[in-house]
Amino acid sequence: MSWYPDDKEWLTKRKAQWKEVKKSLKEMGFYSPQDIKLIKEYFLYGPDKEPLRTVDNDGDIQRKISYMGMVAIWLYPSFDKESIIRELHNFRSTVQYQDGSIMQYDTGANRVLELCDNDFEAHKSAMDGNETSFFQGKEQLLAELLLPHSVEEESWYKSCVKHEDLERLSEECSEEFALAINRLTLFFDKYMAAPNPNYIYRYRLSYCISALKYIKHSEFKSKLMKRNLVSLFTYLDKFTDCPDKYPKCVVETAQEFTRLFNEADLPDSVHALLAPYIKAAKEGAD
């Protein structure tokens, strides 16, 4: 058990932390006052006092609130992955893959992305003087356990493959890749001086690269996408040439993207698709 409510010092710190958590819960806008009351008991005293679930007469688990997987990871007192996975399984709302990732039956994963997408400013980090982030520093764990690591895990991917709908597959992957690239360039550009080290798209790079594999179009349709691709490759070159000049978290993100990109078995058509943007980035730097 990771809760220590009998430890006065631990409980005092946890109560102080709750003030920040409560504010974040209200900002989300989809937990009722009764939900927040239950979550508070879970947050301070653990599942022994408030398990956030009931068991009916047939032995079936009934969750008391929605998006349990997100709460169980985000508000767990430690970062111990195995302990959190055991807690998630207590809700019987998840399936665990061999790599340790969790696929939820509810929409907790989508909510995580929605919160990060809709309000970048509210997704706080230590740059604003806070010791924690919107998700209490659990963004990487949320990404690892709740979000698919690749498009191959998505239901729409499996549907496209089943029906041999390669055109739809290409469109879906183009949209997913565009979204990830747009968020990454925002991360590199908007917060270059004081980046958010907890920004969740730092942990979606393998997903981004996997989407790239299935794009069949001869060019990208979106002008924003084209501009952001040039910006992305420009930043990659900058960080490679002078890593000591830039914040550690953006350099590490760029290095990981480059590694995954170079190691991926991408079709020649994809390299041809990206070549003009890589060239434009290098020419712009000259």
Rank of each mutant, 00 (worst) to 15 (best):
D244N: 09
D119M: 07
Y42M: 08
S218V: 12
S2N: 12
I73D: 01
C242K: 14
L229C: 08
L273D: 00
K190V: 13
F43I: 10
R168G: 00
E131W: 10
K37E: 13
D35I: 06
H163M: 12
V112R: 02
Y67A: 15
T253V: 06
H163R: 15
K8C: 05
A122N: 11
S150H: 10
D265Q: 12
E283I: 07
T12F: 10
E263R: 13
K226A: 07
K245T: 15
D189P: 00
G46V: 06
T240K: 15
H163N: 14
D56G: 07
D99L: 11
G69R: 11
L266G: 08
T234G: 08
R227A: 07
E152D: 05
N228V: 05
K15L: 09
Y214T: 08
L236A: 02
K190G: 00
K15G: 04
K49G: 01
L229P: 00
W3Q: 07
M70C: 09
V270C: 05
G108R: 01
N130L: 13
K40H: 07
Y157W: 12
L141V: 07
F43E: 03
F30E: 06
I200D: 01
L166Q: 12
L212W: 01
D35V: 06
Y76C: 06
Y277D: 00
A264Q: 03
M225W: 00
I84W: 01
R86M: 09
D6T: 15
P267Y: 03
E176V: 14
N90D: 12
D117I: 09
S101D: 07
M68G: 09
L75S: 03
T234M: 05
P195E: 00
V270T: 12
K223I: 09
F257L: 14
H149D: 07
S170F: 08
L212A: 06
V151F: 03
F257E: 04
L25K: 08
E175W: 08
V95N: 06
K81L: 11
M103S: 11
D268Y: 07
V251Q: 05
L88I: 11
S101W: 05
I181P: 03
S269R: 14
Y214K: 08
A109T: 03
L147H: 05
G100F: 05
N90W: 03
D237M: 13
R168H: 05
K15T: 13
K26N: 10
E176Y: 11
E175M: 15
P247D: 02
Y157S: 05
F79P: 01
I85T: 12
A211P: 00
Y97T: 14
D7L: 10
K248N: 04
W18E: 10
A264E: 09
T107Y: 04
F135S: 01
P5G: 12
Y76H: 15
L266E: 06
A16L: 14
A180G: 10
I36K: 11
D6E: 15
Y97K: 15
H149M: 09
W156R: 09
L184E: 02
C242W: 02
W74G: 02
F239C: 04
F30M: 13
H163T: 15
K23T: 14
